[in-house]
Amino acid sequence: MTGSDAAHRADDLAARQAELVAALVAGGPLPPGFAPAPLAAARAALLRKRAGEVARHWPLLAAALGAEWPARFSAWAADRPTRGSLRDGWDFARALRDEGALPPLGAEELAVREAGARYDGHRPPRPRRLPAWGRVRGAVAVQLAGRVRLLRPAPRASLDTAGRDR
């Protein structure tokens, strides 16, 4: 084996590893030759693990969605590569807010986070230095000198017959 053969094999491995990860976490195409069913099982297992990790960073948001959490989060996350559990939960909570589907507990958790840090959706959140408000679906949180408090909870709408928050 020559040095350039080894280098070629390494390049090939790098490209194929990148294709595989893209297929598993970024909605990329199935790489040639792989059996679809086992890869789909791996994809689902990665999403389940990720949902559990995000739930640890966003416990109220996850609790608000209850038994639906893994499926709801996974549906949103399936073709979005992770940007870390904090940002994944933040982006998901904002997406639910924009759809009008963020339950009160999740709105309160998001309001507290928005008051405590500046997050533009592109770069990592940075702690706010100046006093700030966070307002999400009626929940109001305030941050003063680095301490964040929830001033007003989100209103609890009447529940429909399925027990869902309207």
Partner: peptide, 19 residues
């Protein structure tokens, strides 16, 4: 991880000389 993406868990290697 590969190609700038985190897989989030341990992924298997091809059982090849290159690996």
């Amino acid at each position: 991880r590969a190609g700038g993406l985190e897989a989030g868990h341990l992924l298997p290697l091809p059982r090849s000389r290159a690996a």
